[in-house]
């Protein structure tokens, strides 16, 4: 029995990756939930918005890298991130002006907007593939570690190593900063409060003199920023591929719904719930169990509940269980 090594193994292969993935999902789900709360539909184009913002960031990163610009220990992509956000915001605002606004003026039913967002999804998907292609792209500046497995072993003298990559650390810190700013904005500023008011009761917001177009514009900008940050962090952590981002839609929707659509706190909770369940259920527990259990009764097999390819199934199962017991998600009522 060696509980310390068991814990380090668990931390290395489960806790750290799940925290990083959870932060990425949470940022993605925040975007979905904001659109749901304020524009009142589920945006099928959100995955592609993330891909678009990330693509801009990548292009700028490459440009900076070719200039030899860097941020020292931090990835160059962080330097390019503001440009990515700006590019993405510009694009979604143009989309809103050219596409969504018409339906808003018509007071179209939300489900019509869902179909509209499918069209936007196709277009964005096409644009991203057109510009950067369908292939995998890495844009980090090579693997970098806050602590590498070897350093950790040397430092602690333990058998197991705990590696924390720079990208993981940056993901978590950036996510915390972004979420803190968002919550401050929504709860403390006049514009943020007006967004919550608009989400709560559109007619009354109108009668209070809140300009819906402004609320919607600010929402899109925030969503573009969230999507770009989420996408860039995901890309730094893993890699960028247009199709993967499209596929992130399911776990992101699942996170947002588990937490309760329209609730920012819920989106964050949902993101971590989904991420942890995915990683826990698809992780091969053998090594941890061998350390944790007394000698001789460790498992023979991999002790993996489900193959990693079923990670979508896990998000979905969690979603189903939550909906069965709490049809409105975990944090209902607390809307944007």
């Amino acid at each position: 029995m060696d509980l310390l090594n068991a814990f380090i193994t668990l931390a290395n292969f489960v806790i750290v990756p799940a925290i990083a993935y959870g932060s990425q999902l949470a940022l993605g789900a925040l975007g979905v939930t904001l659109i749901y709360g304020i524009l009142r539909f589920s945006n099928f184009a959100h995955g592609d918005t993330m891909a678009f913002g990330t693509m801009i960031t990548i292009l700028i990163t490459w440009l900076f890298q070719s200039w030899g610009l860097s941020l020292g220990v931090f990835p160059t992509a962080l330097l390019a991130l503001p440009f990515g956000i700006a590019g993405c915001a510009l694009f979604v605002l143009m989309t809103d002006r050219a596409v969504y606004r018409f339906y808003r003026v018509q007071k179209a039913k939300p489900v019509i907007l869902v179909i509209v967002s499918m069209g936007v999804m196709f277009i964005m998907n096409g644009v991203v593939r057109f510009i950067i292609g369908p292939d995998d792209h890495a844009f980090g500046d090579g693997e970098r570690f806050i602590i590498s497995a070897r350093t950790f072993r040397e430092m602690t003298g333990l058998q197991e190593g705990l590696a924390i990559r720079t990208s993981t650390g940056i993901t978590v810190i950036t996510a915390i900063i972004v979420v803190a700013i968002l919550f401050w904005f929504l709860n403390k500023t006049r514009t943020g409060k007006s967004m919550r008011a608009y989400s709560d009761n559109e007619d009354l917001a109108l009668l209070s003199g809140i300009n819906p177009e402004r609320v919607v514009m600010v929402t899109w900008i925030i969503v573009a920023a969230l999507a770009t940050v989420a996408g860039t962090l995901y890309g730094l952590d893993k890699s960028f591929k247009a199709f993967t981002y499209f596929q992130l839609l399911l776990p992101i929707f699942a996170s947002a719904i588990v937490g309760g659509l329209g609730s920012p706190v819920g989106a964050i909770a949902g993101g971590f719930i989904i991420a942890f369940s995915e990683v826990l259920v698809t992780y091969a527990w053998k090594k941890v169990l061998v350390y944790a259990l007394p000698d001789g009764i460790g498992p023979d097999g991999l002790a993996q509940l489900l193959s990693t390819d079923y990670k979508f199934a896990v998000s979905f199962l969690i979603l189903l269980i939550v909906l069965l017991f709490r049809p409105t998600g975990l944090f209902k009522g607390k809307s944007v």
């Binding site: 539909f41 589920s42 039913k109 489900v111 608009y198 559109e202 007619d203 409105t328």
Partner: peptide, 16 residues
């Protein structure tokens, strides 16, 4: 909306 009441895609609350 063809009677669609799907809460996972459309938010009926607070619409103007």
């Amino acid at each position: 909306d063809r009677g669609n009441k799907d809460r996972s895609i459309a938010n009926p609350a607070g619409q103007g």
